[in-house]
Simulated assay, not measured.
Amino acid sequence: MANAKAKTINLLLYEGNLSGVISIEDSSWNSGELYSAPRESVSDLLSTDACKKYGVYLLLSKDMVYVGQSSDLSQRINQHIVGKDWWESVVILTTKDDSLTHTDIDFLESVLIEKAKSIGKLDCDNKQKGNKPKVDKFREVYLGQYLEEALFLMQLIGITVFSDTKTTKTGTLISTIDINTKLAIGKRAKADAIEYLSENGISVDNSATYAVLQDDKSEFWANPQAELLKTDWTIILNDNHNMELIVLIVPANRMQMASLGKEGLYPRTDKQNLIDLKIDAESYKDKRSGIDFSAFIENRIKY
């Protein structure tokens, strides 16, 4: 017989695995809903009903978080695709019945900002924002319970950025998965890929472009900032079909963006400062520009 504290948790995996959009509901969470997606699947997330509601969103890397809120989550998150290049995944906290008010999301945002700031995980752009509004004592209890359950569910799927590393316990759904499986999952594994490369003597920083083999196994897709062409540009290709990480280094100013009379990499049609990079999985040529990236392969590491 289940005890009084038992709960059921429903996960909807939009791509059939942990690599795409996830929706979570919890029997102890009343009408609460959590959506999670890696950066590469943000467009899929923005097409869900979650982005039509009032809610709080979190831009996440392994060690940092940006907390925001909006009544138009789709537009706001889209702005951050261009404005911030460090984040690797996004979480949306909302409700099934769209019952959160503007004051509610102001309150939730402010509490999460304070929590992240207190343990040194808050993005620097976020530190002067998040004034806590006044809510009555009954609503504050409700919102406190809402956040408690949201933090529990985030930890369950491996999001520990709000946890003090000194006291965090292991044993979450994601932390119990070995690194080889995490890399095979692929889309949310940039931090794990960098860590794995480091363990194998290859130093790569977080500015590297990360692309996982697409579901049709024909190409690696990414939208890196065009500014990277001015630097020594590191690209990590995760071939999770052949269980291999491929590291490329393109020297600074070796490539350029296409323009009138000049051949080069193509920008996204809607965002000219982003490269529309589609590297063929066999030839390593960019499918749009025809540029051959195979000459820039530095390392291949099996996992």
Rank of each mutant, 00 (worst) to 15 (best):
191 A>N: 12
192 D>W: 10
166 K>L: 09
207 S>Y: 14
180 N>V: 07
165 T>R: 12
213 L>H: 03
166 K>P: 04
200 N>F: 09
191 A>H: 10
178 D>K: 10
179 I>H: 00
192 D>H: 14
196 Y>Q: 08
235 I>V: 01
228 L>Q: 07
187 K>D: 15
237 L>Y: 06
229 L>F: 11
200 N>E: 02
199 E>S: 14
168 T>L: 13
209 T>V: 06
162 F>M: 12
237 L>V: 14
230 K>L: 15
175 S>Y: 08
179 I>A: 03
222 A>K: 01
182 K>V: 10
204 V>M: 08
206 N>T: 13
202 I>K: 08
174 I>M: 11
206 N>F: 12
181 T>L: 14
195 E>C: 07
186 G>T: 04
191 A>Y: 11
183 L>R: 04
205 D>H: 04
200 N>A: 07
170 T>G: 07
163 S>G: 02
212 V>D: 13
194 I>F: 12
183 L>K: 04
203 S>C: 11
204 V>D: 00
199 E>F: 12
191 A>C: 09
166 K>G: 09
181 T>M: 14
190 K>A: 11
185 I>D: 02
236 I>T: 04
216 D>Q: 02
172 T>V: 07
178 D>P: 00
186 G>W: 07
220 F>D: 00
230 K>F: 14
224 P>E: 00
236 I>L: 15
219 E>N: 07
207 S>N: 08
157 I>K: 01
211 A>M: 12
176 T>I: 13
202 I>A: 06
172 T>E: 04
